[in-house]
Computed example of a mutant assay.
Amino acid sequence: MPDWFDDEAGPVVRPYALTGGRTHYDAAEFDLVALIVTQEPAEEEPERPGPLGMRSNRWAPEPEHEMILGLCRSPLSVVEVASELELPLGVVRVLLGDLLDQSLIVVRRPAPVAQFPSERVLKEVIDGIRAL
């Protein structure tokens, strides 16, 4: 039977184990350059009885979620978060989706790239400068 770990690398955790088998986040697309910032949680919801009368509507973050929240106290792009955690981008997107669902992060879209003036406008500006 093959070993499931390497003595030098330590135990291997498959990416799908970190996401509960989920491979993508349905509600939003996380651009590689979208900025992620930690947000203070809103007032806690009162607990409601769940199945069998149990009171468990609270979400329990995993250690990876906690690491993301710690990293994103100052804005970081999605790709920077993946790099810092040394996790695949797909896994980080799923984890970010969990945090977004809990309103623990804010996603800021990158500013659109400015439109460059047409070649004709640039030529007219150059001609105007030469005329001075």
Rank of each mutant, 00 (worst) to 15 (best):
E66R: 04
L100S: 07
V125D: 02
L35Q: 10
E62Q: 04
L85S: 07
E29R: 15
E64T: 10
A42L: 09
Q39A: 08
E43V: 13
P2L: 15
Q115L: 04
E86A: 11
P110R: 05
N57F: 10
A82C: 09
L85E: 03
G50W: 11
S118A: 02
W59R: 11
A111F: 08
V121A: 07
D26A: 15
V94L: 10
T38G: 01
S77M: 11
L87T: 00
A42F: 02
D31E: 12
V92L: 07
Y25M: 09
V92W: 02
G53N: 11
Q102V: 02
L76H: 15
G97K: 01
P61N: 15
P15L: 10
F116W: 03
R22F: 11
T38S: 08
V79P: 05
E62S: 11
I36P: 04
L35I: 05
E66F: 01
V107R: 12
V79I: 15
L71T: 00
P75E: 09
E66T: 14
L76Q: 05
P75D: 10
L96P: 07
L122C: 12
A34G: 14
V113D: 11
V33A: 15
A60R: 13
D101A: 08
L35H: 13
I129Q: 07
E47T: 00
V107E: 10
E62I: 03
M1Y: 10
L100M: 01
I126H: 06
V79N: 07
T19D: 12
L99K: 07
G21I: 07
P41Q: 06
D3R: 09
N57G: 15
G20W: 09
A60Y: 15
S56W: 02
E47D: 10
E86F: 08
P41K: 00
P41C: 08
M1I: 12
